[in-house]
């Protein structure tokens, strides 16, 4: 969808009255949740939400987070990019739930959301994309909490806030603690090796059409779980660009020697199915890559599942990193 609308509160109030009347709830104050409420601080301000929501709608990044946290979901947006990361149980839940929106915020089916009769809507899209959503119309259906991603490594706090809003912190914290235990264990294994090495990461979002590659530093998609295991991705971006460009940059392929020349270990992103993405293959095939000292030393490791945005899926990432880096222990 197009342009965000100049929505006004008056229309929304009229709407709310009519809607819930149609649904037969008979409440006099339909947009305010029945039962105990609390005030929650989200990207879109301080929102009054039910203390224990019963029927939750999730979109965007909130979909995998709330599925995993076992929130009482009644409808979700599609989330194809997260599918390869889902466990079979999560995937089964994803498949059974009603889809009320598509991949992009523009593809939101407001009538389907209204029909699901939610008491809370959690929107997990980045702030600029919020403009694509009729927040007023959604607010007429149920309280709307917008919690979107900012930095790539910020999924830890983000998914916790989303789970908190949906009243699903208990399960969430169990999974989080399992992740922390796991990474602590793996980090201990590598304590003598990994922290002393200068690491660099080649990301998957380089554009062949621009002849560039993506270098990820600490705190980016490809690096944040490996950091939990003790890896340090030295250096920082030349020009900070906000969002993911605070922690990753896109130099020309000609600059490969100056970017990765000093790295002792290079990790690179591969797809969940183990295939090498085009932008990465382009770099691996370049004659300049073959001249790098880390490549000559054979210290180049592919990492799977770097797109994790939940603790549950990040456990798979941690295992994958562990498996990939194993040769370091024997050297």
């Amino acid at each position: 969808m197009p342009v965000p609308r100049l929505a006004r509160a008056v229309g929304a109030l009229v709407l709310a009255a009519g809607l819930t009347a149609g649904c037969g709830s008979g409440s006099d104050e339909p947009s305010a949740p029945t039962g105990a409420t609390r005030v929650f601080t989200a990207d879109n301000g301080d929102i009054t939400i039910p203390a224990a929501p019963k029927r939750v709608i999730a979109t965007g990044y909130a979909v995998p987070a709330l599925l995993e946290a076992g929130a009482p979901l009644v409808g979700i947006s599609t989330w194809r990019r997260g599918l390869p990361m889902m466990t079979p149980q999560t995937r089964a839940a994803y498949d059974t739930l009603a889809k009320v929106a598509g991949e992009s915020a523009a593809e939101t089916n407001y009538e389907a959301i209204a029909q699901a009769e939610p008491d809370l809507i959690v929107i997990g899209v980045p702030k600029p994309v919020l403009a694509d959503i009729e927040l007023e119309r959604l607010r007429a259906i149920a309280p709307v909490v917008a919690l979107g991603p900012s930095l790539p490594s910020g999924w830890r706090e983000l998914s916790r806030r989303q789970a908190d809003a949906a009243g699903a912190l208990a399960t969430f914290d169990t999974v989080r603690d399992a992740y922390r235990n796991k990474t602590r264990g793996i980090a201990a294994k590598y304590a003598g090796v990994l922290p002393r090495l200068r690491c660099a990461h080649l990301g998957a979002y380089g554009e062949i059409a621009n002849g560039n590659f993506q270098r990820e530093f600490n705190g980016s998609w490809g690096t944040n779980v490996a950091q939990d295991l003790g890896a340090d991705y030295y250096g920082q971006v030349k020009v900070k660009g906000g969002g993911s460009k605070e922690v990753s940059e896109y130099p020309s392929i000609e600059e490969l020697p100056s970017a990765f020349g000093e790295a002792e270990v290079i990790t690179y992103t591969i797809a969940a199915d183990g295939s090498t993405p085009g932008g990465v293959r382009y770099v691996l095939d370049s004659p300049l890559w073959k001249g790098l000292s880390a490549v000559k030393a054979g210290r180049v490791y592919p990492l799977r599942y770097t797109e994790a945005t939940t603790y549950g899926s990040a456990m798979a990432t941690a295992d994958a990193v562990d498996k990939a880096l194993e040769p370091l222990l024997n050297s």
Partner: peptide
């Protein structure tokens, strides 16, 4: 490309003509 975001990057590659990155 709206339905299949995986194709999105591929499409971005072919939607704007470029001479870079074709040397291989």
């Amino acid at each position: 490309r709206l339905l299949l975001p995986d194709v999105f990057d591929e499409y971005r590659f072919w939607s704007v003509g470029s001479l870079a990155g074709r040397e291989q």
